[in-house]
Design a protein around this nucleic acid. Sequence first.
DNA 1: GCATGTACTATCATGGATGATACTGTGACG
DNA 2: CGTCACAGTATCATCCATGATAGTACATGC
Lengths: 119, 119
Amino acid sequence: MDDTVTTRRDRRKAGRTGCAVEATLSVIGGVWKPVLLFHLLEGKLRFNALCRLTPSATPRMITLQLRELEADGIINRIVYPEVPPKVEYELTELGRSLAPVLLSMRDWGQRLQMLESAA
Amino acid sequence: MDDTVTTRRDRRKAGRTGCAVEATLSVIGGVWKPVLLFHLLEGKLRFNALCRLTPSATPRMITLQLRELEADGIINRIVYPEVPPKVEYELTELGRSLAPVLLSMRDWGQRLQMLESAA
DNA sequence: GCATGTACTATCATGGATGATACTGTGACG
DNA sequence: CGTCACAGTATCATCCATGATAGTACATGC
């Protein structure tokens, strides 16, 4: 029928479905990103603090996720040229605008957890 | 040091971080789930209709995601005992309660897309 | 009788995301 | 002098999610 572009993979790479939900997910869709962002909602945090708050993620993963978030303009990475090194992460304005999304996700998750424990 | 449970993997499987955001993500966190749910927000849909609305996902993936959503009580799967087979999917009440989450995600995604095209 | 549509399922293959572990350089602390 | 904390990197291994393809049963249409 069409011998040009047929694989679903191509379609995915070529054009998005146009769904804005997907756009959001492409930014906060990782496994750890929502958690990291959630912690950052309450203020600046240092790298090791984030590590301690997310004990099931490796530092490597946390670094990677933070870098992606930084590249997407969601967080700022502030390096203090001191020794020992000090790096703080904070939400940008764009990042803070995610608050409604994160909060509605938290609210729904809380209701779900309540339903689960009630059952 | 401690010979009980140390790996991050174990920690992840054992107990969640307690973050309600994670609970939400564990339900709608797949790649295709938000898109499928979004289409279903507008009403019942048949399997092939969902396939056509999500051309970059294979039927297999759509089946798997729908089954997971069904298992989580987000959607109902209605089988009409006819031939040719007819199956419809619709949101449950719990599924409909996800609307705020999905809508806030859509809103944020739209703003992001506008920012991107404006830049 | 062959193709088509429906709603899947089965099988195989792959690869990209993740995990575990070890290592870096510097200063401070004991 | 040894060790710790900080903020990561580097390397290797693995495995789970996904992709592609083909097949199922039945009925209708040509």
